[in-house]
Design a protein around this nucleic acid. Structure first.
Lengths: 103, 103
DNA sequence: TAAATATATGTCATATCTGACATATACGCA
DNA sequence: TGCGTATATGTCAGATATGACATATATTTA
């Protein structure tokens, strides 16, 4: 996949028009990235709601603080698998995950 | 993660009690696997509805027939990322994906 | 303000996922 | 039955994701 495009995408809040057309993403690519970003944002929301630090979450999911940071900032190196597993580890229900996806 | 457990899980239709307790999975593991299996089954459903062969789907997602077979049989070697991307490539909406997840 | 705490970024060796290939099995249908 | 077509399974080299670490940058607290 296209790491560079996604990296760019995550940084520009100043765009004119959609980032999708700016970067020339296909519909699938755009949807996929959008999905990941939504779930990442949700993960951060859930963690902070639970008043956990990134270090604490890292312990729970048996990872590291740096990876949690990457999870939450939508770093292109993180997989949907890890995002979903982290959400599940925090007790997020399937219904909530579904809600986030279709929102 | 635990490939062997999942591999077992996918084969036994004859279990007594839940596979989860039989295999000693944690709640997160069980939910995660269940999620993947649901989405895999959905992918197969969508493909056959569209009257596509595995070879044709493989072309669309730029993969191979064998990987498509693995996608659809819930092989432990396939990621959620690939399942989701395949569904998106077939035009499945986020709403539909969400429905599958919370079903 | 400074120090403490939390989060972000960069890098890397290793683990896991990937497409591709060979080959096996299943399912028609003549 | 055998033959054509579709799907499943096994393997592997190369690609991508991973946890861990160092370190930079925010953010909070005294």
């Amino acid at each position: 996949m296209n790491k560079e495009k996604q990296k760019k995408l995550e940084k520009n809040g100043w765009k004119i028009g959609t980032t999708k057309e700016f970067l020339g993403l296909t519909d699938e690519e755009a949807s996929y990235i959008e999905l990941k970003l939504k779930l990442s944002a949700n993960l951060k929301r859930v963690r902070t709601e639970r008043k956990l630090t990134q270090v604490e979450l890292a312990r729970i999911i048996k990872s590291s603080q740096s990876r949690v940071a990457k999870l939450e900032t939508g770093d292109p190196s993180v997989s949907l698998d890890l995002i979903i597993r982290s959400l599940l580890a925090l007790g997020t229900s399937k219904k909530d995950i579904a809600r986030t996806i279709s929102s």
